[in-house]
Amino acid sequence: LLYESALSRELQQEEKAYKLEYYLLAKDGFLVATHPSVKNIINVTTEQLKGIYSGSIKNWQELGGPDAKIVVLDIPKEVAENLLRKYYLGQDLKISSEAVVLRRESELIAAIQNTPYSIGAFSLAYAISHKLPVNHLSLNGVEPSLENIKNNKYPMVIPIGITIKKTPAKSVKEFVNYAMSQAGKEELAKHNFVVFTQKK
């Protein structure tokens, strides 16, 4: 742990003992999206999302969409599934054995654009910045927007921060100073992250 790195979560209590400092730079929304072939569905509830991921809801027609089998795209239990489980799926939900498990988020992003009737979850900032041709789903009526992240209405967010040693190298300190500066915040905002200035 004694190194500088980007971190998509805040430091855990035991990690703070390693003489690390954490700087929260921004937050990214975690988006649930579908391939554009999934017409007429713009919102899903918690129960519907549980049904989709568990496999008890198998066809988009059950939710008012097209008559087509739902293709669930998933990645291993890392940030992605942990966020979905924390806010919507619950820790004990068994993911459908028919879900297509991909190794990393970049593979899921490619798959959702190329797989009709698919659903998956990934970075909102990436989706906006790259103008991905996917449908952004509201969850329980809350739209995944930068404004809703800013006002804490959209719960699924990923903190983007930097951990450094308390006595960092000069170049590392200079980078952190830039990242925390107005110019650094503007650069993050250009890529559709919600920026913050607090030091944790």
Score class of each variant (00 low, 15 high):
K170F: 12
I41S: 00
S129Y: 15
M180R: 13
A183N: 12
V194C: 06
L31T: 02
V38Y: 00
Y22T: 09
E21W: 00
Y87C: 03
H35N: 12
L93G: 07
L139I: 11
I57S: 04
E10P: 07
T167Q: 11
Q182N: 13
P116D: 01
F196Y: 13
R104H: 14
Y22R: 06
Q61R: 05
L73S: 14
L49F: 04
K200R: 11
Q91V: 14
L1M: 11
N40G: 03
P133D: 14
A33H: 04
E187C: 05
S123G: 01
F193M: 12
E4P: 11
L102P: 10
P76R: 13
L102S: 07
A17W: 05
I70Q: 01
K165M: 07
L49I: 02
G141H: 08
G64D: 10
N40V: 01
L24P: 01
G29H: 04
K94H: 10
P76H: 15
T167F: 13
A110H: 15
H35D: 09
L83G: 03
S56I: 14
L20V: 10
K50H: 05
A189T: 05
L1H: 10
Q12N: 07
E10T: 14
Y126I: 03
Q182H: 11
D28R: 00
S54F: 04
E147M: 06
E15A: 11
E105H: 13
A111T: 15
Q13E: 15
H136T: 02
P144R: 04
L2A: 10
S56H: 12
P36S: 04
K153M: 15
H130N: 15
Y53F: 12
Y178W: 11
I109H: 01
S97H: 09
G51Q: 01
K185R: 15
L124I: 12
H130G: 04
F193K: 11
R9S: 05
K190I: 05
S37G: 08
T167R: 14
L93S: 13
F193T: 03
T46H: 13
L31V: 03
K27I: 01
A17S: 09
V194T: 12
S56V: 13
D67I: 03
S138M: 11
T115V: 09
M156V: 09
L1G: 10
L31Y: 04
E62K: 02
V134N: 03
L188Q: 05
L132T: 08
I75S: 02
Q48I: 08
E147W: 06
A189Q: 10
G55F: 04
P168H: 13
N140K: 13
N177R: 14
S37Q: 10
G161S: 11
K50V: 03
N140F: 08
A68D: 00
S106W: 05
V194H: 09
Q12E: 02
L49A: 06
K199G: 07
T115Q: 14
E186R: 06
R103L: 12
I149D: 00
V72D: 00
Y23M: 05
S129V: 01
T167P: 06
T34H: 03
E98K: 02
K150H: 00
D67A: 05
T46E: 14
Y87A: 06
A99M: 13
L124F: 06
K200D: 10
H136F: 14
V194D: 01
L20K: 15
A121D: 01
I70E: 01
A68Q: 03
